[in-house]
Every structure is written in C-alpha cells, then in structure tokens.
Amino acid sequence: MAVITVEKLSKNFKVKIKEKGFKGSLKSLIKPKYNIVKAVKNISFSIEKGEMIAFIGPNGAGKSTSIKMMTGILFPDKGKIDILGLDPTKERKKLAYSIGCVFGQKEQLWTHLTPYDNFKFFGAIYDIPESIVEKKIEELRELFELDEFINNPVRNLSLGQRIRCEIVASLIHEPKILFLDEPTIGLDPVVKEKIRTLIKRMNKEYKTTVVLTSHDVSDIEKLCKRVIIVNKGQIVLDDTMENLKYHYLNKKIIDAKMKEKINLEDVDGITILKDKDYNLKLEVDLKKKSISDAINLLNTDKIVDINISNVPLEEIISEIYKDGDK
C-alpha cells in the first residue's frame, strides 16, 4: 500500500537579481529583475508503507524542496501530492498528526529546557494526554539511549545528542511517516554511525516509513533499500540500493602518498587517475579487484599516507547521465 504518492510535482522560486554596485542596487529597487529558478521539475514517485527511502543529490538539487512540499511547508506550483490519503495543501493540520519531521539545520527544541520537558511540550502540541506521553517518553528513551542526558538542558548537549532528541521529539505522537532532512549534517563519522543505527532500530521497531534526504552517500548506503537521486530538480534515478551499488557504487578511490616514485600501469580493474611525483590516485573497480589487491600493488612499505574514499556523488550522477545518453 502506497503511503506517499507524488504526481508531476513542480515548484519554481522567484529570485531577485541584484547587480553590483550602487547603481545596481538602485536599479533593482526601481525595477527589480527576477530569475525563475525551477527547483523541482515534474517529479513523480510513490513510497510504500514501512519503506526507508533516501533522496540524495548535491546541494540545491531540489531534495529539500520536495520534502517541504510533502510535509505541507511549501505550496507546490503544479502537481498532486497524496500523503496517507491527505492533501498537504488543504489538510495541513490533520496531516501533521500523522507525520514527524526533523530538519537537521533547524532546531525545534527549547534550548533552556531539558529533553524531558521538551518532549512533554511536544506531547501537548499533539494533544496527547500526559500519562500516555510519559509512557511514550520512557519507551523512546530506551530505544534512543537518552538516559545520560535526558535531564540536562538542551543547550548543554552535543550536536549528536541534540539530533537524537530532535528525532525523539518528532516521534512522540507516533507518526506513520518520519521525514528527516539532512539528519546527519555537521556530525562526525562516529556520531553519524550512531544516529544511523538508531534510525534503523526505530524503523524496525515501529514500522515507521522513513523518508530522508542527505548529500552523504554513506548515509543512504547504510540505511535505505531504495534511493531516489535528484539533480537539478529532476529525478535522475529511482532504484534499489542493490542496483545502485552494483552499477555505480562499486568503485573506490585510493589516494596514496609514497616515499619514492613507483611506476605503475593500468591493470584490469585498477585505473590510474593521477600519477604526479609521489602522489598517486587510483580507481578500483570492486567487481574485478579488491582494495587489498590495489594496496598490494603499491609497495606497502613505501606508503606515507593513504586515503580510501567513495566516488563523489557528483561523479556518480554525471555517470548516470552518461548512461542515459547511450
């Protein structure tokens, strides 16, 4: 059963153009010029109950705009949205009772209060009787491991702890769908991992549908079974994580700094992208060769520094485009 159906959704923004200098400012006052930015262009998709789905794409791709339209924050210019049988533009309040939202860059907690008091406040916002709120807090406190800091004012918590509390606050009213907009932004890798584990556990426990956006590929790799890649306001790819991994995420980049210059040549599965002085950059195709094959190729004794990373999202997207052209 689909809980979210989006059909031919579009949204434009009017952006004022300012020219430089005093003359420009004066001009823009008298006769402002606007640029129409097409943030979301004619996108359609649907999401099933209990799914964990990710919207990924570079900054400004339109992923947040899409989420904001689904949650009733923004009015779409064109298209239809159906969330749990409700239209966010007309039944915003009703919808709010069944969805939860966390915006990584916008705190909704009162910083001078403890998480506990905050949760009770949100209970009241969603008209939940006190006794039920207390039970719910107890349950979530265990699930999200909040014991350490549930009674400290939010302003004294670390960013990771705050995000955990933000997520809990958005779960107080047992939403059927949880929207997470960049939940791991600004966090260090260890904390990111923690948040991912908790989200996963929550999804398992409550069967909550989770829609999240991120520009970090590893967020998605670890959490979601399905991915929608957005770029320039359009859906570039809507596929399972497995397929995506097989086709695009099967490459790793190795940056190595060597003690002395070594001469390498391309082998099947390992491409040399850069070879300048003591610095080497290799691309490893994991379908053919493993990381250890590649490292063995470099003389391990002579490695000064090494860094293994994923292919940047931008490159994956351009590769998807290239494939589409074929």
Partner: peptide, 15 residues
C-alpha cells in the same frame, strides 16, 4: 501569503 512562503529558498543572488 503563506501560499507564497518559500522557506529558506529565497536567496538574493548577486550577478
């Protein structure tokens, strides 16, 4: 006016 609300997407681009 809320129908015209643009959240944080309203930027003043300098050309």
């Amino acid at each position: 006016g809320l129908r015209k609300y643009s959240s944080t997407n309203l930027m003043n681009a300098r050309v």
